[in-house]
């Protein structure tokens, strides 16, 4: 289970790096989404995997019986997902507004705030 998760994280990061190297900002953004999911999976996996053992307390008990999944990483991932969702929503809106105003998604052509490069 851990090996499979590690492989998935690796594939996600590789794909996100590939996407983020593109000049098109939308591709960069998709890469960012994949990277954020990879980070979330990392946290989840670092809490150790316990398949089929949800962190539930049986009715009438104060503590869970036997070995259950670690609930803390799940809480962390939940927080990170919510925050990541908000940030990505903002970034998407920013990308749209930038496209509307700058008429380009090519990050090489976004030179309004910086001096233009000398090209022959």
């Amino acid at each position: 289970m851990e090996t499979l998760t590690a492989l998935i994280i690796g594939v996600l990061v590789a794909a996100s790096v590939y996407l983020m190297l593109a000049r098109n900002f939308m591709r960069f953004l998709f890469g960012l989404i994949l990277l954020s999911n990879a980070a979330n999976l990392t946290i989840f996996a670092s809490g150790r995997m316990t398949p089929g053992a949800p962190a539930l307390v049986p009715y009438g008990e104060d503590t869970p019986l036997g070995v259950v999944g670690n609930a803390l990483p799940q809480a962390l991932v939940l927080t990170a997902i919510v925050i990541g969702f908000g940030l990505l929503a903002f970034t998407l809106a920013l990308a749209f507004e930038a496209y509307r105003r700058l008429r380009t998604m090519d990050s090489d052509k976004m030179r309004y705030a910086e001096p233009k490069e000398e090209r022959e």
């Binding site: 900002f25 903002f90 920013l94 105003r101 700058l102 030179r111 309004y112 705030a113």
Partner: peptide, 16 residues
């Protein structure tokens, strides 16, 4: 326009 351009770069690198 300057702010949007700057915003894209600031947001992208800080999120990474």
């Amino acid at each position: 326009r300057e702010q949007l351009d700057a915003g894209i770069k600031y947001v992208a690198l800080n999120l990474v």
